[in-house]
Design a binder for these strands. Structure first.
Lengths: 213, 213
DNA sequence: AGCTCCATGTAAGTCGTTACATGATTCA
DNA sequence: TGAATCATGTAACGACTTACATGGAGCT
C-alpha cells in the first residue's frame, strides 16, 4: 500500500487539510498513484489512529460554523516514512489490460486492432506531454509543493531533492515513449498482416465454441 | 476486470478444468495479469452462472469417488470475448510503488538509494529473460496452449495468431529494457550527487516533524 | 506407507471504486 | 442570489490477497 506513504510524504512539506492533500495529490503523486478523495479522508483517519499524523481541528470561517482538520506528521510518522523509502518492496505484479487484449487481437478485424493501437498511442502521448510539462516545472522549482519543501530544507540538499523527482518523471516519459513506439510497431504489424488481402477477408472470425448454449 | 476475459480466452483453446486453467494461466497470461488460484475457481463459478461458460462434471479416478469440472466456452461467452477485445477500455491507472519511492529518495542514504535501483534493475532483468524465452517458444510454436489453438484454427490465420502474441511479449521486453536503463541512470545519478562528498555526509536526514508526539 | 500431483474450494480481510450526501465560504 | 470552491465524510460494492481446508489418484 503506497497511499498512506504518499500522504505521509506530502505532509512532510507541512500541515495540510484532507482537501489540500487531495489537491496536491492530484497535481503530483497522482501521476504515479491514483486515489479517490474519499479514500484519502478515510486513510487520514486511520493514520491518525495509528499516531502517524495528528490533526489540529480549526474553526473555519468568520462565524466558525464549520471546522477543518489540518494534519501534521508526527515523529513516528516521519520514522515510518523513512523506513518505507529504505525498504525494498516486492515489485508490483504486472497487470495491464491493454497487453492482455493485444495477445488476442486475432479475434477482431484489423480495423479494430488498429483502433486499439491508436488509442494506446494517444493515451501515452497525452501522458508524455503532461509529464514533460511537470519535469519543466520541477526543474524551474516552480511547483507549490516543491517550493514549500525546499523552503524548509538545507540549501545543499536542494539539488538532490529536485534531482530524484526529475529522474522519476523522466523515467515515466521514457516509459511513455516505449509504449508509443510499441503501438506504432503494432500498427505496422497490422499493415503487414493485411497486405495483399481483399478487404472482405480482413475479418478473422472467432472459432465457434464447442458447447452451444 | 481482465481475469474473466483471460479465462474466456484460455477456454477458447478448448475445455479445461479450473486446475488446468490455473496452470495454463501461470504459464501464459500470468506474465500480463497475476491471479491467485482461489480467485480463478470463484470467477469460473460466476462465469457459469452468467452463462458464459458451461461445466461438464466428470467422475474422476477408477472408482469415481471424486469429480472434476471441465469448463467450455458457450456461444455467449465467445461473443463476450470478442466484444471485450474490440472494446477500447479506459487505460489502467498508473500505480507503481517503486516510482513513488524514487521521488522521495532524498530521505535515505545514497547507499540505500543505490540498493533500490539495483533491486529494480535485477527484477526487470529477470523478467526480461523470462519474456525472451517465452517469445522464443512462441516463435517455435512450441507452447502447449498455442499448439492447441493452432490445431483448431485455419492455417492462414496461424501467422496472425502468433504475430500478435510475439508483438505483445516483445513490447514487454522493451518495457523491461526501459526500466533497466532507468535504474542504471538512477545509479549514475546517485554517483553524481555523492561525488566529492565525505562519506560521513552522505546521509540526507529527514526534517524533524512540526508536531512531536 | 508416504510423496507428489490432481482437484476444488471457503473465509476473512484489505484495498480500492463508485455513488451518495451535506453544508459553509467567498466572490461576482 | 447563485455559482464556484472549500471541506468532510458514509455506504455499498467489487477485486484481490492470504490463509485455511480437504481429499483422491498414481507411483515407488
Amino acid at each position: 500500500m503506497s497511499l498512506r506513504h504518499a500522504l505521509l510524504a506530502l505532509l512532510e512539506a507541512g500541515p495540510m487539510t484532507g482537501y489540500e492533500l487531495a489537491k496536491q495529490f492530484d497535481e503530483t503523486v497522482a501521476y504515479l498513484w491514483r486515489a479517490q478523495h474519499s479514500q484519502i479522508y478515510t486513510e487520514l483517519r486511520r493514520l491518525e489512529q495509528e499516531g502517524l499524523v495528528v490533526a489540529n481541528p480549526q474553526p473555519r470561517g468568520a462565524r466558525a460554523l464549520a471546522t477543518k482538520r489540518p494534519y501534521s506528521l508526527t515523529a513516528t510518522g516521519a520514522e515510518e516514512l523513512q523506513r518505507w523509502v529504505a525498504e525494498v518492496e516486492p515489485p508490483a505484479p504486472v497487470r495491464d489490460p491493454a497487453y492482455v487484449k493485444a495477445t488476442y487481437l486475432e479475434y477482431v478485424s484489423p480495423q479494430i486492432a488498429r483502433e486499439q493501437f491508436r488509442a494506446h498511442r494517444a493515451h501515452y502521448e497525452a501522458l508524455r506531454d503532461r509529464w514533460e510539462r511537470h519535469v519543466d516545472e520541477l526543474e524551474l522549482r516552480s511547483t507549490a509543493l516543491l517550493r514549500r519543501r525546499l523552503a524548509d530544507a538545507p540549501a545543499d540538499t536542494h539539488d538532490a531533492i529536485v534531482a530524484y523527482k526529475v529522474h522519476t518523471y523522466r523515467g515515466l516519459i521514457e516509459r511513455a515513449r516505449t509504449e508509443i513506439s510499441w503501438a506504432e510497431c503494432g500498427l505496422a504489424l497490422v499493415d503487414r498482416l493485411t497486405a495483399g488481402l481483399d478487404p472482405a477477408d480482413q475479418v478473422e472470425p472467432i472459432r465457434p465454441p464447442g458447447v452451444p448454449r
